[in-house]
């Protein structure tokens, strides 16, 4: 990639960056002002739970869109659930999952 191509991409990044910023700002400050309904508010309050589900379920059972449940990683993630429940430390879930995964990996493979 030469310097001319690089000069082309920097403005492209600025356009994408500006549009991303505008999207965030418009929906953070302007649009909700005109929406005053308990139904809409309930819908919007569900976003955080939906996001968590969207980041956990597909990424646990699927790799590149292919259903692959029979993996040591899935077993590690299932074991993590009761540990988080007991310890009440959600932030440590990745660390615990990694430790369990490495342990299982060492035992089975």
């Amino acid at each position: 990639m030469d310097i001319t191509e690089l000069q082309v991409f920097i403005p492209v990044f600025c356009i994408i960056g500006a549009s991303t910023f505008t999207l965030r700002a418009v929906f953070l400050y302007i649009l909700p002002e005109v929406m005053d309904s308990s139904v809409l508010k309930k819908g919007l309050s569900s976003v955080s739970n939906s996001l968590l589900v969207a980041l956990v379920i597909p990424f646990t059972f699927f790799i590149n869109g292919i259903f692959t449940p029979w993996r040591v990683e899935v077993l590690a993630l299932i074991i993590v659930v009761p540990l988080i429940w007991i310890t009440k430390k959600p932030g440590l879930s990745l660390m615990i999952a990694l430790c369990i995964f490495l342990g299982l990996d060492f035992i089975f493979i």
Binding site: S48, V53, F59, I63, V81, W85, A97
Partner: peptide, 21 residues
């Protein structure tokens, strides 16, 4: 060698469990 899918699920699983609880 550890899949990126595992990292994502592991990071947010704890928060989902606590939401449930």
């Amino acid at each position: 060698t550890i899949s990126s899918e595992f990292i994502v699920a592991g990071t947010f699983l704890g928060y989902l469990v606590m939401q449930w609880k």
